[in-house]
Simulated assay, not measured.
Amino acid sequence: MNDQPVAYLDHAATTPMWPEAIDVMTAELGRLGNASSLHASGRASRRVVEESRELIAERLGSRPSEVVFCSGGTEANNLAIKGLYWARRAQDPHRRRVIFSSIEHHALLDPVTWLAKHEGAAIDMTPVDAIGRIQVDALRSAVAADPASVAAITTMWANNEMGTIQPIDEVVAIAREHGIPVHSDAVQAAGYVPIDFAARQLDAMTVTAHKLGGPVGVGALVIRREIDAVPLMHGGGQERDIRSGTIGVALIASFARALDLTVQRQAETAARIERLRQRLVDGVRSIVPDAVVNGDPDSGPNHRLPNIAHVTFPGCEGDAMLMLLDAQGVECSTGSACDAGVPQPSHVLLAMGYDEQAARGSLRFSLGHTTTDADVDRLLAALPAVHERATRAAHVRSS
């Protein structure tokens, strides 16, 4: 690789921290005092945490008491779905069903399947259409079949591979008819579309800092005070006794600053990134005419996130293209999972109706607040040779 800067196009995996969030975290790392201690240093740390909680709540449209800090999106999703399931089943043993979409992130998909294997949950997967949006009629039918047996419904706000935004309002409306709690994984959505927890009438919602220009290692489960959830961990009783553990003051303060900046700049950033994404998509199509851009073609808070372009390259292996691009200083993702080092086709694309070959031949380019025209230019400059080599290699393997 030459000495040019890397074109980082994997912001959906993690995005660089805002400089201001780094400054806040750096300053707070020098602070002494456990936020649960009663002395002056402890009270000062607690003040930072609670002021951060108030700011995060304001930016997410919730009450401060509804923000429960944890280590990130995976923990928040586990706490939400397992906690709701255990609490609801304890109230009524008949409530054993968990309804979830077929395109959930593994941070939600795996806890749900764990509940089925270890806790006797009956899991019901809602199908999606060809652009990756859940089929609301199928969800309605699944609930109507036996609403009293449903412990919880979970549907991500926006898909991490396609960027497709889900019909959260319709999901909530169906659940409300039967008093079923709804959780949404908003990890990808929070950075690029307006989020209002109260207005959407959700019962629980997951967010994480490192997708917003904050640090890795902190996130939040926003959960209504009226909702019971059994904790995963037991200890000091921090965070409403839902999530025990010593509070990371510096992480939380940096999280709050990053979210604040993200929301302030969201409209401007989204418009700029959508323009860059369109340049990228147009360029890819001109270089590889048979490339297929997946997901909703329209952008906006009811359609698609502005920062994700998911592309299938017929006749190519996505993993090969990823490594060839990486060698040219372009970093992206296949969007697929790896199990014990063996590449697996994306479960999202399979759920959308793609066959395994197409699912294996796809790349996700995700943009963020640091993405520039130069990043897009570098991808487009590298793509012709990379595509040619990947096509030739795939042809050799298949012959």
Results as ranks from 00 to 15, higher is better:
Ala57His: 07
Val216Leu: 11
Val187Gly: 00
Ala40Lys: 08
His310Cys: 01
Glu170Pro: 05
Pro301His: 06
Val230Cys: 12
Asp169Ile: 03
Ala151Thr: 03
Val182Glu: 11
Thr15His: 01
Val193Gln: 13
Val67His: 04
Asn78Val: 01
Gln357Leu: 08
Ile223Thr: 14
Ser399Pro: 02
His210Lys: 11
Gly42Leu: 00
Met25Phe: 02
Gln328Lys: 15
Cys316Phe: 08
Val136Asn: 08
Ile308Leu: 13
Arg279Ala: 08
Asp23Arg: 10
Ala87Lys: 08
Arg225Asp: 15
Asp298Trp: 03
Ile252Glu: 02
Ala382Met: 05
Gly237Glu: 08
Leu276Ile: 15
Pro314Asn: 07
Ala209Thr: 10
Ile22Asp: 14
Asp10Ile: 01
Ser62Trp: 06
Asn2Lys: 15
Asp3Ser: 12
Arg200Ala: 14
Leu9Trp: 00
Ala12Tyr: 01
Gln238Leu: 09
Ser141Glu: 11
Glu177Tyr: 01
Gln166Val: 09
Ser346Thr: 10
Thr262Phe: 05
Trp114Gln: 13
Ser184Asp: 11
Glu54Arg: 15
Glu317Gln: 09
Arg364Trp: 04
Val396Leu: 12
Ile56Tyr: 13
Thr312Arg: 11
Ile247Gln: 05
Ile134Trp: 08
Ala12Gly: 03
Ala337Arg: 10
Arg360Trp: 03
Ser62Leu: 06
Asp110Met: 07
Leu221Pro: 10
Met233Glu: 11
Ile287Asp: 10
Gly163Arg: 03
Lys211Glu: 06
Leu60Glu: 08
His105Ser: 13
Leu363Trp: 11
Pro19Lys: 04
Ala291Arg: 02
Glu66Cys: 11
Ala394Ile: 07
Val136His: 12
Leu276Asp: 14
Glu28Gln: 13
Val128Asn: 11
Val281Thr: 14
Pro167Gly: 04
Asp282Arg: 12
Met321Asp: 01
Cys332Tyr: 02
Arg257Trp: 03
Gly179Cys: 08
His347Gly: 08
Ser141His: 12
Arg389Met: 13
Ser333Gln: 13
Asn307Trp: 04
Ala327Trp: 06
Leu55Pro: 06
Ile247Trp: 00
Thr208Lys: 05
Arg133His: 06
Ala198Pro: 02
Ala253Asp: 11
Gly120Phe: 00
Val193Arg: 15
Ala57Trp: 04
Gly283Met: 01
Glu58Arg: 15
Leu9Gln: 02
Thr74Asp: 07
Gly368Val: 06
Val386Asn: 06
Ala351Ile: 14
Glu75Thr: 09
Ala340Thr: 07
Val68Glu: 07
Gly315Tyr: 07
Ala40Tyr: 05
Ser244Trp: 05
Gly179Tyr: 09
Gly368Gln: 04
Phe255Ile: 04
Thr15Met: 10
Arg392Leu: 10
Ile242Pro: 04
Glu28Phe: 02
Val49Ala: 14
Ser299Arg: 01
Leu379Asp: 04
Leu29Cys: 15
Arg176Trp: 04
Gly341Leu: 08
Val263Trp: 03
Gly61Glu: 00
Gly61Pro: 02
Cys316Ile: 11
Gly335Val: 05
Cys332Gln: 00
Asn2Arg: 15
Asp298Met: 06
